[in-house]
Amino acid sequence: MMKDSQRTLVIAIVAALALAAPWVAYPVFLMTALCFALFACAFNLLLGYAGLMSFGHAMFFGMAGYFYGHVVKTWNLPPELGLIAGVAGAAAIGLVTGALAIRRQGIYFAMITLAFAQMVYFFCVQAPFTGGEDGLQGIPRKPLLGIIPTHDDHVLYYVVLAIFLFGFGTIYRIIHSPFGQVLKAIRDNEQRAVSLGYEADRYKLLAFVLSAALAGLAGATKAMVLQFATLTDVSAAMSGEVVLMALVGGLGTITGPVIGAFILVTMQNYLASFGEFVLVIQGVIFVVIVIAFRRGLVGELSALWRARFQPRSTEPETAD
């Protein structure tokens, strides 16, 4: 562990970078990365701290985008209502699918969430309000809360940064709350937690809904930034991508998913010209990480750090 003074310094540097970033880098790129970072953190909350691997998180992310677009474009309501609709809609889908999925454990849970996400995908292909293959295009950027001019990319960047920090802070609070402690106890030994009187299924369901709601927040925000919602965001490929982001950064670490999301979004930006080859590269990353670097970037680095400065400590495996 770093000393407190070191930690404060790191936080100050990161904060300065985050504030200055849109004047250095392309704001829309940064905002997209922040949306994916929040999405990956929401996914990681479920896997890293509740031990549940969802392979269908795109259904929350993508549907929230559609909800946002529908509320803001079709119903012509202000963006804050769109965001609320996205979060609430994702949470509602999470409640239904989660209640069913937690009836099975382990790998079945992943398959069930994946199957439900695919069902949502097929639904979106046919449903009239999603715009089918074209998606919802041209969602207007209207003033947030009636005053904040979101049509300006720089202003919107700070809004998105605030949303991200809100989501990230929420996750941090959840993990360190008594609720988070119980979740970890259930993850480590469900039977013992049940015998201590905790209703494991309720805790798991609540974690699932919270994770879905935060993924929805990320999805709605992305629709606000990019002004469209498409089938890509509800597809199985998107569900896989968020897993990869968390995996690259480090499953079960707090900052890992953020770093993983930035790496993958950057990669996609640069590799866009490769077309289908992006899939191949993603696949290779999956394989390499699963075979050789299961702790992800943050996990491996902190293991190195520990090995360097506390040579005798044993290294815990993350999320095994």
Binding site: I107, G240, V243, V280, G283, V284, I285, V290, A319
Partner: peptide
Amino acid sequence: HLYGFLLTFGLALIIEG
């Protein structure tokens, strides 16, 4: 089990890509 799932998912991406 999760890792087998992820590994074979990655392989599917490679082959299909």
